[in-house]
């Protein structure tokens, strides 16, 4: 566990990349615990794949004080539970106009498009965090065969509902936006609705499977 200063009003706790399957338990339980315990001067707590971001008001909390406080809090956090998620199935239309990057990706990965789709549908993914855009789920881990770097320059337009992969992750773009991930399909599911009591369709800890349509 390492602490890094993120600018002048946030801290990042990063966790050693040990067993990837373990992340949701350790990082998730710390995230839940901090969300319950940290209130004064803290504006946001964000869960990432193997890190937690803590955003605070630097006129109330000095960064060095924040670190000491969080360290001592986490020492008391043993036995705190991780995230309890639900199983969710998401329908996806793969390839063609819905997955503009699929064919190029197949060339780069030395696979056929069909193999990529099959691999992508064959696993259950854990939602490690929501970020990038409202409701954008970081899900993984991806099958080893599909692991590929992000685009060198992000595309300036990715359509809402796009299902994409990059690194160890797969994700869904909730809105039209720029994006650096490889788009392989699209889902009609609305990932974020600001007028619902729980605006985000998925939450950390959920288990997701993709079904081909």
């Amino acid at each position: 566990m390492k602490f890094h200063l993120l600018g002048d009003c946030a801290l990042v706790i990063s966790y050693e990349p040990c067993d990837r399957e373990e992340y949701p338990d350790i990082v998730g339980s710390h995230f839940n615990y901090l969300r319950k315990k940290l209130t004064y001067g803290v504006r946001d707590i964000v869960l990432c794949y193997s890190s937690i971001g803590i955003y605070f008001d630097n006129s109330l909390i000095y960064p060095h004080e924040a670190e000491a406080c969080i360290r001592s809090l986490l020492r008391q956090s043993s036995g705190c539970v991780g995230m309890a998620g639900e199983e969710v199935t998401i329908p996806v239309f793969y390839g063609g106009e819905f997955g503009p990057d699929l064919e190029k990706l197949a060339q780069n990965l030395n696979m056929t498009s069909e193999e990529i789709i099959h691999e992508h549908c064959s696993k259950k993914y854990t939602v490690f965090g929501i970020g990038f855009l409202p409701g954008f789920p970081y899900m993984g881990p991806l099958p080893e065969k599909l692991v590929i770097a992000r685009k060198t320059v992000p595309a300036s337009f990715v359509a809402a509902g796009s299902v994409a992969i990059a690194g160890q992750h797969t994700g869904i773009y909730p809105f039209d936006s720029p994006g650096g991930w490889h788009v392989i399909g699209r889902t009609p599911v609305k990932m974020f609705d600001v007028y619902k009591p729980t605006p985000s369709y998925l939450k950390p800890g959920d288990i997701v499977t993709f079904s081909r349509r």
Partner: peptide, 19 residues
């Protein structure tokens, strides 16, 4: 690592993509 994991960011963060 080009497959670097995602980390928290804030307004003001300077990222360097592979370009």
């Amino acid at each position: 690592d080009p497959i670097l994991e995602s980390y928290p960011v804030i307004p003001g963060t300077i990222q360097v993509p592979s370009s």
